[in-house]
């Protein structure tokens, strides 16, 4: 009928038309539909500084190694409290400007960690600045590129300058102090803004569980607690380091710390819950009251109290619960 073997016009026209139809069905139509979502009720809009940070994030090609999607499978639980939904991208995935399109934030490689919830997981500005100046200064094994061009060196920093406490090992000269530029501050602001907005209570979005058999917990109270070391490695290690030594000038050591080794755990638990900003020589610590359950805090605290030469008595979940309600009532 079309005589495709001999009629070049028909051949090209048919392959063109069919391909366009298929493309409309599989790409353009679903794309249109997916635009029609609204943001979640408690989802904040990006501030100007955060938006600038997003532009730098795209310019430097961070998306090549960092995804921003929590998949609906159990292994992705460590990156967020719920699977990502289209609304999550309402503000961040808009056209950047005339020249550049909506950023490809979902990513396709996790050479580095997923960033969906990094603002919750890693809330310290100082840590992010150090990490951007040279990732090896806070994470020994990291292979992330360093971004020294987002910083400048000054011998006498002014009052407004944000000085980054870079360890001497990573400095070229002892005299210059490393100052975060506006770009670095914007980028950190963007990273801090990455938090999963809470879902309205009516919705049901859950992880597909792995069919892997769960290890049956051994009897006894001890094993009822989650694995403290693992939680420490997920939540605390970035600043306090795997060996508990912290970083000189940035994050205090936990090994040999008076607070950690104190028989009375009250101060220690309070700091974990509410954060700490009493010592000038160290960066500010933020509180983890919203992120960690009493069981998790107890597990982490016990790990810290019995590792790296520390030798303090273990604490129970009940103690944490008591300190939490007491501390929260004080703060009200």
């Amino acid at each position: 009928m079309f005589n495709l073997h001999k009629n070049h016009r028909n051949l090209v026209a048919i392959s063109f038309v069919v391909f366009v139809l298929l493309s409309l069905f599989i790409a353009v139509m679903p794309a249109y539909q997916l635009q029609e979502v609204s943001p979640l009720p408690d989802q904040p809009e990006l501030t100007t500084s955060e938006l600038n940070g997003l532009h730098i994030f795209i310019s430097e090609g961070c998306v090549a190694c960092h995804t921003q999607q929590v998949r609906n499978i159990e292994m992705d639980k460590m990156w967020g409290s719920r699977p990502s939904i289209p609304s999550d991208y309402y503000y961040s995935k808009q056209r950047l400007d005339v020249w550049r399109q909506s950023p490809s934030l979902l990513g396709s490689e996790r050479t580095g960690p997923d960033l969906t919830n990094v603002g919750v997981r890693q809330p310290a500005d100082q840590w992010h600045l150090l990490h951007l100046y040279n990732p090896r200064s806070v994470v020994d094994e990291s292979i992330m590129p360093a971004y020294p061009w987002l910083f400048e060196g000054k011998e006498n920093p002014g009052q407004k300058d944000v000085v980054v406490p870079v360890p001497a090992k990573f400095l070229k000269s002892d005299k210059t102090k490393i100052i975060a530029t506006k770009e670095a501050m914007d980028l950190v602001a963007y990273l801090q803004s990455l938090k999963q907005a809470p879902m309205p209570s009516t919705s049901t979005s859950e992880f597909i569980p792995s069919t892997k058999k769960k290890e049956v917990a051994a009897l006894g109270e001890k094993s009822m607690l989650p694995d403290g070391e693992q939680l420490y490695m997920q939540t605390c290690v970035a600043c306090h380091q795997a060996n508990g030594q912290g970083l000189v000038g940035a994050f205090p050591p936990l090994a040999g710390s008076k607070i950690v080794n104190d028989e009375n755990p009250e101060m220690m638990i309070q700091i974990i819950l509410m954060g700490y900003d009493a010592r000038e020589e160290y960066a500010v610590m933020v509180g983890f009251a919203d992120q960690l359950t009493d069981e998790e805090i107890a597990a982490i605290a016990n790990h810290e109290r019995t590792s790296w030469g520390n030798n303090a008595p273990k604490i129970t979940v009940e103690e944490v619960t008591k300190i939490r309600s007491y501390t929260l009532s004080l703060n009200k």
Partner: peptide, 27 residues
Amino acid sequence: IWTIVLVTIGYIPTYQDGLGETVIQGY
């Protein structure tokens, strides 16, 4: 001819906000 269509669809912005961009990216 397919690649010309592809590049055109890939760069037209009207359906590429939010996850629309992701669908087009995969395509």
